[in-house]
């Protein structure tokens, strides 16, 4: 299978053409002008991950919500499952920067941490 994608590792944005075999393994990457492009293509085809950011409801804080992020990138396909957990979570003030608000979200092994105070 052939996949086309834009490398976003730097602003040049090379068009990459990736050749995959039936086991979804990368056979070749074309169009990249540096090594990072190849790595990006392999990551995107085999295990695409994303940082997820959102807000969590707070009881008794100054503001009704506090911003949060995944402590590490999570598999791209799990973003919406994680959103559901995040949206069903309510925490009590005070919240400090970096507080862990949800542990091991959706069995990703990644925590949801506060990115501000409330």
């Amino acid at each position: 299978m052939i996949k086309e994608m834009v490398c976003v590792s730097c602003p040049i944005g090379c068009m990459l053409t990736v050749e995959l075999n039936d086991n979804n393994e990368v056979i070749s990457v074309k169009g990249n002008t540096c090594k990072r492009g190849e790595q990006y293509a392999v990551d995107e085809c085999t295990n695409p991950v994303r940082m997820l950011t959102s807000t969590v409801r707070v009881n008794g804080g100054v503001l009704p919500v506090v911003p949060v992020k995944t402590a590490k990138p999570i598999p791209k396909g799990k973003m919406f499952d994680c959103m559901e957990v995040i949206n069903n979570t309510v925490v009590d003030a005070p919240i400090r920067m970096g507080d862990v608000l949800i542990t091991n979200i959706c069995d990703t092994g990644v925590d949801i941490v506060a990115t501000n105070e409330d």
């Binding site: 940082m51 950011t53 911003p67 949060v68 992020k69 990115t115």
Partner: peptide, 17 residues
């Protein structure tokens, strides 16, 4: 609240807050 701030200055990908 999204991340992407500070890559140049702190060498880390931070959220705005």
């Amino acid at each position: 609240i999204h991340t992407g701030f500070g890559l140049h200055y702190f060498g880390e990908e931070l959220s705005g807050p």
